[in-house]
Nucleic acid binder design. Sequence first.
DNA 1: GTCTATACGCAGATAGAC
DNA 2: GTCTATCTGCGTATAGAC
Lengths: 201, 201
Amino acid sequence: MGLKDSTTEEKILEAAKNVFMKYGLYGARMQDIANIAGINKALLHYYFRSKEKLFDSVFEKALEKYFDQMTVIGDKSLPIKDRLNVYVDNLFDFFREYPQMSMFIIKEISINPQMFHEKVAKLKYQKSMLIPTLQEAMEKGEIHSFDPEIFMINLHSLCAYPFLASPLYKAILQKNGYNWDEDAQNRIKESVKEFISFKFQ
Amino acid sequence: MGLKDSTTEEKILEAAKNVFMKYGLYGARMQDIANIAGINKALLHYYFRSKEKLFDSVFEKALEKYFDQMTVIGDKSLPIKDRLNVYVDNLFDFFREYPQMSMFIIKEISINPQMFHEKVAKLKYQKSMLIPTLQEAMEKGEIHSFDPEIFMINLHSLCAYPFLASPLYKAILQKNGYNWDEDAQNRIKESVKEFISFKFQ
DNA sequence: GTCTATACGCAGATAGAC
DNA sequence: GTCTATCTGCGTATAGAC
């Protein structure tokens, strides 16, 4: 991971990301983060003051990336189907780095919706125009008509869940002679694109 | 929920299920569980000895239900496509009661695979024959050929994720004039069955 | 900036009365 | 079986030397 050439702050953020992704906010231990970062526990507080603030830093950085890769949806120079395929590519790249991100967002909203909306508001946040974009294309008769909310839910399910469940699939796939590697992820990605084609046919 | 007519043990298990489902093992507080069950904290320990053991009781009960609803896959009196549709019905019923169950299984496997396999071994566990069943049907030419592992992952994604993300969808759907109610869940279920039809066409 | 040693509080667990 | 009061330990957070 090239941790050796990073600054202490970067090392901490990288270690914290991995520990939080594996154990969640409450399950994560500051001691583990310090060990993995190769520094002392007290230094975590020197840099980030508290566990919550450290989590927030990881979370906000991820949230920013998450919204960044979403902007392609609004790019009107491409046909809607192409935009969706690029969006899926982006989502897969994102989840490779932050496999548990959806759960963090979900928990955050579930436990403290106010806080979450404040964090989102801080970003140069461009609202995902997926649903209105689909509706518009349907009205123009460019695509076959279907329920855009359900489609959005299906699409997110297909992209997010395999990464959430990766510890499980690592085990299952290995028993069947496969690995949870980039190749497996790409085969899943192709199946998602196949699903998009099916809905757009 | 009819908590009033239940025994103390049932009240505890019901409360514990909800709190664990919302906050996870580490995020859950024994005090919260006691409050919701309408009893004292000490009584939790009287009945279940420790937090971990209480969690295990909830978890094992759920695991049993989870495997129960899976047996239909092996029921050779039905065509494979019908079996899958019943399986999806069962899965949706299960996730309505235990929306976060997949994450518990996943975390358990991720953190302590040994323990998980022991728990499964205790059940009158019938291995999901989904993949071999599909392979057999393909070899016989009953269904069109596709990758059964990827299909299984897609199917689980489509069923499990909407419940994991339900706090999120509650918020999103409400903004668009819908609710996260049984009707919404049924529309998602229909879309999953549509996906099955698509793969089996 | 980084460390060791230590304080502090919270949540799980226990003792013991009723 | 159920309660109140109390203990204990762990994990976050701080003080202070270097």
